[in-house]
């Protein structure tokens, strides 16, 4: 046999996971997978620190992500074990054991989002209540802005934060109609 030729045949293609893992592991890009949700298909993005964003699967989601997070996106399977955690988080509307990457928000916003994550399914809280909880009772408006900046809607249930006068208020993930749908399914809206 021609030995050099035989050795050459041992050059194989690296599995896809290698390149994906490198790009994710360096932090150059986040990975994304598409999941089903009550609001239809959603894009869930992730990196080694956690889930970084949730967005509706619609034209331009990659550009929106790049603009906001200054990183690229690459379609990939989630880190091992995260698939089930993501499914459960989307279904229950709380992160649970799923790590969330909140580097994209300020310290205050992070505190607000952590409080938001603890609002039980089937219940709602007002912007003012959250402001109070985070020790800045007059910051209801800043709380509202935080909800608009929530990078991981559905996983951190900002849809459970409503206006004190009973109106549901704004919702970033496809508008107020979606917020009503979620609250109705959860039994928080008649």
């Amino acid at each position: 046999m021609n030995l050099e030729k035989e050795l050459g045949r041992l050059l194989t293609t690296a599995p896809r996971e290698v390149g994906e893992g490198v790009v994710l592991g360096t932090g150059i890009s986040d990975g994304f997978s598409v999941f089903e949700s009550l609001l239809g298909p959603v894009v869930v993005t992730f990196n080694p620190l956690g889930v970084s964003a949730v967005d509706l699967l619609s034209e331009g989601f990659e550009q929106r992500f790049e603009q906001r997070f200054q990183r690229g996106l690459l379609e990939a399977r989630p880190p091992r074990g995260w698939n089930d955690l993501i499914l459960r988080a989307l279904e229950e509307g709380t992160p649970g054991a799923l790590p969330v990457d909140l580097r994209s928000v300020t310290t205050f916003q992070r505190e607000v989002l952590e409080e938001t994550a603890a609002i039980p399914r089937g219940q709602t809280r007002s912007y003012g209540w959250l402001a109070h909880q985070t020790g800045r009772p007059r910051a209801a408006r800043a709380v509202g802005q935080t909800m608009a900046r929530n990078p991981v809607p559905l996983v951190i249930p900002c849809h459970r934060v409503v206006r004190a006068d009973g109106q549901v208020g704004h919702y970033g993930l496809g508008g107020i109609h979606n917020k009503r749908t979620l609250l109705r399914v959860e039994g928080a809206l008649g």
Binding site: T12, G21, P48, A76, N83
Partner: peptide
């Protein structure tokens, strides 16, 4: 360190290169 990013399994292993055992 650093730990490799282990992604969810694709559910299959690609075939071994030829004569793996012999090599």
């Amino acid at each position: 360190q650093p730990k490799p990013v282990r992604l969810e399994d694709a559910g299959y292993l690609p075939p071994d290169p030829p004569d793996s055992h012999a090599w």
